[in-house]
Design a protein around this nucleic acid. Structure first.
Length: 794
RNA sequence: GCCGCGAUGGUGGAAUUGGUAGACACGCUGGUCUUAGGAACCAGUGCUUAUGGCGUGGGGGUUCGACUCCCUCUCGCGGCACCA
């Protein structure tokens, strides 16, 4: 290494933080680019490779945009509420506020080593009362508008972290996203945000540049399905059962109904008095969600003893209770059509229930061994006979509506967002209860409704806030004797659901953000991990849409362009402290410096793919930067040839395109080729300036140093080089010659040449002529400027 | 089961979107210089039975021409799932 990177890095990091030329003009929205990287949790550990992989390349993008002439805003902050600080408090007795802030200052120091251009003057720390006061404002806005409500529900309980979790925070295997504990179901009164009101809107992605994968995941999660609701009357009673089906065309094939074991009919009709039914329901209740949804187990159920009237035929059909029907989807009851639904088929076979065929594929399809679930043509279906499934669905739906026995209906899988948490270190829910237990919002003048300090952190299954004398006294003092505070805190995802709105106006103490400051939004580039697809990113979209409905903001999507950086793994596994496979950047920073380390991460491969960590190639980057440094130590004065200028301008073009597409790896390759080309012959003064500019977003420190040798201002306020296409045109072109699609020669010709002449030259080429000698030529294909293919008969 | 993504030298990866497969880099081999090199520089490096043949997970197809498009299979990753 022949440049002193340690000295250079320190020098320019200080320069960037102090130089006013580089500051964002907060009043200029016209030309704005809001570049945001998902903020992180201040853990107190050192920055790891994941942080670097997130922050380094996104800073490269921001610096590039700045040089393109945009007014770039790249804020940074901390998602500071959450369990680790609280667990630390339980273990060591240190107040979370104290440990959090000490972690933040360590982390900020470390972030400096990346050398990113952050707008620290707009920093946001979600656990500070200046911030959470407005998270409480958000809650109250939603509450006032019926988008926040309290209800008792079966909720996900994490027995390790001793708190409830939102559906989004429970993994597919039934474990907690955070603690890894097996989540259990528990009935509790909790606060919810009504995200389901926005289910349909959330399915619209017009104008968004988002990864297809993420959109697919959200669509999957929202889980829209179209169908119909049908009402069945229970025989010999006034009760009715609503069912949801996506196949109303098969209604004539419904031979029984199934209700979930939790269905209210069971209590309403006193079916629970039947021993067998009670035993079945109890057993279902004791099963975990995971056991319940185990696809391999055979279906079980119990006959309810009662019947329903088929709404079209009037025939009595039995009502069964079975746990293959879930209470939390649709209406918790189905019409079973064993001929055309595989689950119903298996159940009907097992319990010997009638199976009717009402759909055929035109070839008299068999339903002897399994259900026929495809679309086809209606049979045995009265007025639907001979109709195609699609038409039959429409006709049946209209019929149901006319007869008032059903209606067209849409069901979403998405559930309302459970935001209560039985933990200490979070935003207090700004609600108090009167002596009768009715909730009341805390008036604005008492906000922030602060977290009390006199608590027992250790969770006992109820919220730590319940142990605070101060909180209770405060409540009674303000509201009166017998009034009680809400003691749950909010999910930290509430904090992060609106932080991007706060950044441009983070010091505002009279409102969450001024209307003027929202002109910085939406975020132009949002970069962060794909694991947030159905959590943070969905919540943020919901909050933005809700605030838009409330006319607080005038846009309805928070992030115009979204990009997920890939994951850096170690030996194929995700790096984590618990696995002990984390790699610290420290030794690499010490040995090679920040520029080299950040470039190496970018050079590893496509940014959205991440990759498995190994340090073998870092030397290559270090070598490249040293060569670049050496190349720029002198200038050589010579008249550049057309080849030289071709290299310069094609490099400008390629690097520009690559950075536009965040293909940092190929941008670096092009710059390496550039250095390799000029290394031996030396570089002219003007070309050197262009090269330094192209390199600067990727390796900012060394570039700023090299730039400073000849300039008085920062390279980052210089304008990005422009490719002059006149240098990209060459007088001669290289044409590849194929015979029957196989490459045989390459010829260099004048670019004005016509096809006939070119083909003639090609045929005369020694390596071509021997393959076409004495052969019949069938075709001669010429793709201008690229290739000739001579097709011969073999 | 359904949906989405992926598979290219010894390694990480590139390929103007149907037109030179393997750019760039690591590693390796040989050389120059050097007291020395784990520094710098130069050359070589897909495989091979080598004027040729074969090569982008396997098989088939479309095309003058396929890593690229179509069909099919295998493996890996991610999401959803008794979702009615």
């Amino acid at each position: 290494m022949d440049y002193n990177f340690k000295e250079i890095e320190k020098k320019w990091q200080l320069f960037w933080s102090e130089n006013s030329d580089l500051k964002t003009d907060y009043d200029d929205f016209e030309n704005k680019k809001y570049c945001l990287t998902m903020f992180s949790y201040p853990s107190g550990d050192k920055l790891h490779i994941g942080h670097w992989y997130n922050y380094g390349p996104s800073d490269t993008l921001a610096r590039y945009l700045k040089m393109k002439g945009f007014n770039v805003f790249q804020p940074q902050g901390f998602d500071a509420f959450g369990l680790p600080a609280e667990n630390y408090a339980i273990k060591h007795g240190v107040h979370p506020h104290k440990s959090t802030h000490s972690n933040i200052s360590t982390m900020k120091k470390q972030l400096e080593s990346i050398g990113a251009l952050y707008n620290w003057d707009k920093e946001v720390i979600t656990s500070d009362k200046e911030y959470y006061r407005w998270t409480q404002w958000l809650f109250l806005k939603l509450y006032e508008n019926n988008l926040a409500y309290r209800k008792e529900a079966m909720v996900n309980w994490d027995p390790v972290d001793q708190t409830v979790l939102a559906n989004e925070q429970v993994l597919a295997d039934g474990t907690s996203d955070r603690s890894g504990a097996l989540v259990v179901q528990k009935p509790l009164v909790q606060w919810f945000f009504k995200i389901t009101d926005y289910a349909e809107e959330l399915l619209g992605y017009e104008g968004l540049s988002w990864p297809k994968k993420t959109i697919a995941m959200q669509k999957n999660w929202i889980g829209k399905s179209k169908g119909a609701r049908v009402t069945f009357n229970v025989c010999d009673s006034d009760f009715k059962i609503d069912i949801f089906t996506t196949r109303p065309d098969t209604l004539f094939g419904a031979t029984y109904l199934v209700v979930a074991p939790e269905h209210n009919l069971i209590l309403d009709l006193n079916l629970i008095n039947n021993k067998e039914i009670k035993a079945y329901c109890d057993q279902a209740a004791n099963k975990s969600e995971l056991q319940r949804s185990d696809l391999d187990k055979s279906k079980t159920g119990v006959f309810s003893g009662i019947y329903a009237a088929h709404p079209l035929t009037g025939k009595q059909i039995p009502i069964w209770i079975a746990d293959y029907v879930m209470m939390n989807y649709g209406t918790g009851a189905i019409m079973a059509v064993p001929g055309h639904d595989q689950r119903d088929y298996e159940f009907a076979e097992k319990y010997d229930i009638n199976i009717i065929k009402v759909v055929d594929d035109g070839n008299d399809v068999s339903i002897e061994d399994q259900a026929f679930t495809d679309y086809g043509t209606c049979i045995n279906s009265d007025f639907l006979n001979n109709l195609k499934t699609k038409d039959a669905i429409d006709k049946m739906t209209v019929y149901l509506e006319n007869e008032k026995i059903g209606e067209s209906s849409i069901t979403y899988r998405l559930k309302d967002w459970l935001i209560s948490r039985q933990r200490y270190w979070g935003t207090p829910i700004p609600i108090v209860y009167d002596p009768d237990g009715n909730p009341h919002p805390i008036p604005d003048e008492y906000l922030p409704w602060t977290l009390p300090d006199d608590v027992e952190y250790k969770p006992k299954g109820t919220s730590p806030l319940g142990s605070s004398k101060e909180l209770l006294e405060r409540t009674e003092k303000i509201f009166g004797k017998g009034w009680k505070p809400e003691i749950d805190t909010m999910d930290t995802f509430v904090c992060s659901s609106w932080y991007y709105l706060r950044y441009p106006d983070s010091a505002n103490s009279s409102e969450p953000f001024s209307y003027e400051s929202t002109k910085w939004l939406p975020v132009d580039y949002y970069i962060g991990g794909a694991e947030h697809a159905t959590m943070h990113l969905l919540y943020a979209r919901f909050i933005t849409k809700a605030l838009n409905t409330l006319k607080i903001i005038d846009f309805n999507e928070p992030f115009t362009s979204l990009y997920h950086q890939g994951t850096i793994t170690k030996d194929g596994a995700k790096m984590s402290k618990s696995k002990g496979n984390t790699v610290s950047p420290d030794i690499f920073l010490d040995q090679y410096g920040s520029d080299t380390f950040r470039c190496y991460l970018m050079f590893m491969g496509p940014y959205d793919e991440g990759g498995d960590w190994n340090d073998k190639g870092i030397k290559g980057i270090s070598k490249f930067l040293s060569r670049a440094y050496r190349l720029c130590q002198q200038t050589v004065d010579y008249k550049e040839t057309s080849d030289d200028l071709f290299v310069v301008h094609s490099t400008i073009q390629a690097v520009t395109n690559n950075l536009d597409e965040m293909k940092f790896n190929t941008a670096l390759s092009r710059l390496m080729e550039f250095v390799n080309y000029f290394y031996a012959k030396g570089i002219t003064a003007s070309t050197k300036m262009i090269f330094i500019q192209l390199l600067s977003p990727l390796a900012p420190h060394i570039s700023e140093e090299l730039w400073s040798y000849e300039n008085n201002t920062s390279v980052f306020i210089s304008s990005w080089p422009i490719c002059d296409s006149k240098y990209l045109e060459k007088d001669t072109i290289k044409i590849m010659v194929q015979v029957n699609g196989k490459l045989r020669a390459s010829i260099e010709v004048d670019k004005s040449i016509n096809k006939d002449k070119l083909v003639q030259i090609a045929k005369e080429n020694q390596n071509v002529s021997k393959f076409i000698l004495n052969k019949e030529i069938i075709r001669e294909i010429y793709v201008p400027n690229k290739i000739i293919n001579i097709v011969i008969k073999e």
